Computed example of a mutant assay.
Amino acid sequence: MKDILAEIVAYKRTVVATAKQQRPVQALENEPLFNRAGLSLVDFLKQPQKSGIIAEYKRRSPSKGVINDHSPVEEVTQAYANAGASGLSILTDDHFFGGSPEDLTQARALVEVPILRKDFIVDEYQVLEAKAIGADVILLIAECLTKEEVQRLSTTAHNLGLEVLLEMHTEAQLQKVSDYVNMVGINNRDLVTFRVDIDRSIALAAQLPAGKVKVAESGIDNIDTIITLRNAGFSGFLMGEHFMKQKDPGAAFLDFVNALAQKKAR
């Protein structure tokens, strides 16, 4: 996966260079959504009436291939929001994941929950772009950024009113957490072996600075796992493939949320 990640990052840098020529920063700043007041995913994750789940819209991935090429983004994201999602995660990378910035903008017009722009952000331009397309949160991946890059990108996001989710998997990446990282995502899946280890994620989360909201990512497909992670201090649970691989992702999400609520009520 590290080779795939390096390939994605290298490709992304060429895409950003082209985008800067085709759509300069001033054009982004002139977009109607650029001055929109953002929604706080941190606040939404703390609302007890919601599920704590950040439901993801993803068509495909480099490792799994096509996951869902038939469910429209408008239909799925609206169903997720109506069923109690605390937030949405939308892939905006086309080349590797089949997404687009337009997917996020289309969802933004329909829902009033925070939206995470899930992409491989390596340049401040992409942060500005996230603001222009209607995102409330950006994802930064510790594996492909230096501590200084995380600091710079998270500061840019903060100045634009965006929240930051920093994704990590190893203890060595803890030192990359900056003041303007609002949430830390612990990827339960090893990006090299693809092995999922919830216990390792819980141990890593315990070492995070106080006050950082903890989000569990990857490999979550049952209610008991969410309850275990919640008891370990996690507030958010990023889930996508589990729902997207169903014929009707929105209905699958609703069933899952209802079952989770019933389990919590016992």
Rank of each mutant, 00 (worst) to 15 (best):
Q22A: 14
R23P: 01
P24R: 09
P24Y: 06
P24M: 07
Q26S: 13
A27K: 14
L28A: 03
L28P: 05
E29D: 05
E31D: 09
E31M: 08
E31C: 04
P32I: 07
N35M: 12
N35G: 10
N35R: 12
A37L: 09
A37W: 04
G38V: 14
G38E: 11
S40F: 06
L41E: 09
L41V: 08
V42K: 13
D43M: 08
D43F: 05
P48I: 06
K50E: 03
G52Q: 10
I53Y: 00
I54H: 00
A55S: 11
K58T: 07
K58H: 08
R60W: 00
R60Y: 02
P62W: 02
P62D: 14
S63P: 05
S63G: 07
G65D: 07
G65V: 10
V66C: 07
N68M: 07
D69A: 13
D69T: 08
H70S: 15
H70P: 13
H70F: 14
H70L: 10
V73A: 09
V73H: 11
T77C: 15
T77Q: 12
T77I: 15
Y80Q: 02
L88H: 00
S89W: 00
S89P: 02
H95W: 10
F96V: 05
G98E: 12
S100C: 13
S100Q: 11
S100D: 11
P101E: 00
P101F: 04
D103T: 12
D103E: 13
L104N: 05
T105K: 14
T105R: 15
R108C: 04
L110S: 01
L110A: 02
E112T: 09
P114E: 06
F120E: 04
I121P: 03
